[in-house]
Design a protein around this nucleic acid. Structure first.
Lengths: 192, 192
DNA sequence: AATAATAAAATGAACGTTCATTCATTTTAG
DNA sequence: CTAAAATGAATGAACGTTCATTTTATTATT
């Protein structure tokens, strides 16, 4: 693992466990088994490091999602696939998930950082748009649909994490079905 | 408004706008139009202040929810009522909502603080339990149901806030219907 | 291959600033 | 006149950042 990776991984772990306040640069460096000054060879400063952690995690996430994405599958299969992948990613990379859950909305994440991520997630945003045009889901506003489901999953996963609930494949399936039901039912609800 | 309230309100605003790191005690005091030392007359330190902000917001929330809660109403009406109140509370107290959304999962909020809140929300936790026993909703795990809906609403509200989307009564109704549909449909989904 | 020369990366002590906290003093309330 | 509350300058520790020095890697030369 490269030194930059070491630092990112250590930083994410520390930010999650001790918070941004509680994680001094010296401490992050120590956890990464690197000299304090070395962090500054790779990152301009603490704020920059935090933003880079965010990008790093998000890029890992989208990479994972794309790996398991089949553009030829049915809408239902694709949606369920994306939700399943999202949950699996959260499980496999617990500290990544917790980092996102804690800091995705923080004012320390700059607009510049956020803007970098939009194109990366375009595939999935388009999935919602296409599904709407095909009449599979009810709302035309893709981000809204996505966020309310992603938010639900996030909160739930956090709850499972805190309470150390083991998440079986059946549990994942149940969550995904719940999400899909909410999404596909929204057609009737918003119209009725 | 008492001096303690002034400080809490100013702290919440500052924590939301500048983050925990960016909000020095001197700055919070200045925003509260109070001397730096005065903060320490009411709060033991910064961490304590943050925890008190959390309790303050949560207690305000539950007060608001109870004010609009009718224990005699039907399950559907009660659920929809709670969701509607939650959304209205978020809208009326934007910085409270953002504070919760940012720091509710932070490691700076102690377990002690969290434990204080469970009894406060018991009414609403029982609502889920009762509804399950009455066969109205499918899952016996009340916190899970609640969290996935609350999470969805939170993420959505944050999105609306960031994008300055005006939230009409129709929009609230649509969100509440979406939530209720997800909840009441979960019966079929988890069984099917 | 071996050695020297140069560049790049890594180091951690030192610096200067910031900031949480304290406390002697002043102001206000009873 | 007394007690409580408020004040903000002073303090000292913590922390982000820098940089002179050392170590490692790369290239050039014999």
């Amino acid at each position: 693992m490269s030194k930059k990776h070491q630092i990112l991984e250590a930083a994410i772990r520390s930010f999650v466990e001790r918070g941004l306040q509680g994680s001094s640069m010296a401490l992050v460096a120590k956890e990464a088994e690197v000299a304090t000054g070395s962090v500054y060879n790779y990152f301009e400063g603490k704020e920059h490091l935090i933003n880079e952690c965010f990008l790093y995690v998000k890029q890992n996430e989208v990479e994972f999602l794309l790996e398991h994405y089949d553009p030829e599958a049915s809408f239902e299969a694709r949606f369920k696939g994306v939700y399943t992948s999202t949950i699996r990613f959260m499980l496999d990379h617990c500290s990544y998930f917790r980092f996102l859950h804690l800091y995705a909305f923080s004012p320390v994440i700059t607009q510049e950082t956020r803007d970098k991520l939009y194109p990366v997630f375009e595939t999935f945003i388009n999935l919602y748009k296409d599904a709407y045009e095909a009449g599979v889901i009810g709302s035309p506003d893709a981000p809204e649909q996505h966020l309310s489901i992603y938010g639900g999953i996030s909160y739930l996963m956090h709850y499972y994490y805190v309470n150390q609930v083991e998440i079986t494949d059946e549990k994942i399936e149940s969550m995904v079905n719940f999400a899909w039901a909410a999404l596909s039912n929204s057609k009737q609800v918003t119209e009725g």
